[in-house]
């Protein structure tokens, strides 16, 4: 459903800071895939998401989603069918607006000048209740007063309240404390399963890279160096993954935030 064909991107071309962030990426994502993405610092993982979500237009190559070439579609238009979560829970929410207002905005629908209906509010409240965080009693609370975990859960709900074709998760639990991170991962897994979403998840946690999803992609220097799924992947351990990285790249996997256990 998502095809990246020969996608390349070089930042600061022609300067001393030139950085080839993506080089000739070819990736074919099938409907319902849940792909975990790992890689060293600066491997191009987030840049890959940037290309897919429209943060920039790649230098070469095409991005095709469900048969439509979206390479040049502006990011705010893609946002209606591509949901994206970031590491920083503050990124996806408006802090001085309430939980309900944030959700209403994300849920969209209707004309620009339509007023939200009571039924819509109630439906959103139920969705919030299904997160199991007790946020349904705080619908009128400004989001800025919520904890990081609550805020990230809300962002996840906002990104999926209208099921997107594609969900991009960019280390969305990395800034949370372990308990909150675990909770968010659980909610993520449940949402992806229930809505049957196609999902790409960058993670720094090697074991969840293998435990979650059905396919794992490893990146280095703007290239995909490993792409594994099915039985081969099921047989892999974290140690295998690290040695596969060493084989493919000739060096140790180097990531500041990497969790091996």
């Amino acid at each position: 459903m998502l095809e990246l064909i020969n996608v390349s991107k070089t930042f600061n071309a022609g300067t001393v800071n030139e950085k080839k962030a993506l080089s000739d990426i070819n990736l074919s994502v099938k409907d319902g895939d849940f792909i975990t993405i790992i890689g060293s610092n600066g491997a191009g993982k987030s840049t890959l998401f940037g290309a897919v979500s429209g943060a920039f237009i790649p230098d070469t190559g095409r991005i095709v989603l469900d048969g439509n070439d979206i390479t040049r579609t502006p990011d705010y238009k893609r946002a209606s069918y591509i949901g994206r979560l970031f590491q920083d829970p503050k990124t996806g929410t408006a802090p001085s607006m309430t939980v309900e207002e944030n959700l209403l905005l994300a849920a969209g629908g209707g004309r620009y000048l339509s007023l939200p209906k009571k039924a819509a509010r109630e439906r959103l409240r139920q969705r919030v209740a299904s997160l199991g965080l007790g946020l349904e009693d705080r619908m009128k609370t400004p989001v800025g007063l919520l904890s990081g975990g609550q805020r990230q859960a809300l962002t996840l709900l906002m990104a999926t309240v209208n099921p997107p074709k594609l969900l991009l998760l960019d280390e969305h639990t990395a800034a949370l404390d372990p308990a909150a991170a675990e909770k968010i991962l659980e909610v993520t897994e449940r949402t992806v399963k229930e809505e049957g979403l196609t999902c790409l998840m960058i993670t720094h946690n090697m074991s969840s890279a293998l435990a979650l999803g059905n396919r794992t992609v490893m990146m280095r220097d703007g290239r995909i160096i490993l792409d594994t799924e099915g039985e081969e992947r099921a047989g892999l351990s974290v140690a295998d993954l690290l040695s596969r990285f060493r084989e493919a790249s000739g060096e140790e996997l180097d990531n500041d935030r990497m969790l091996l256990s």
């Binding site: 946002a79 001085s96 607006m97 944030n102």
Partner: peptide, 18 residues
């Protein structure tokens, strides 16, 4: 709501497809 969000977190408005 989108106007209020623009003053609060302009990035977030883009993610809401506005």
């Amino acid at each position: 709501l989108a106007i209020r969000a623009t003053g609060d977190n302009p990035e977030m408005v883009r993610y809401s497809s506005v």
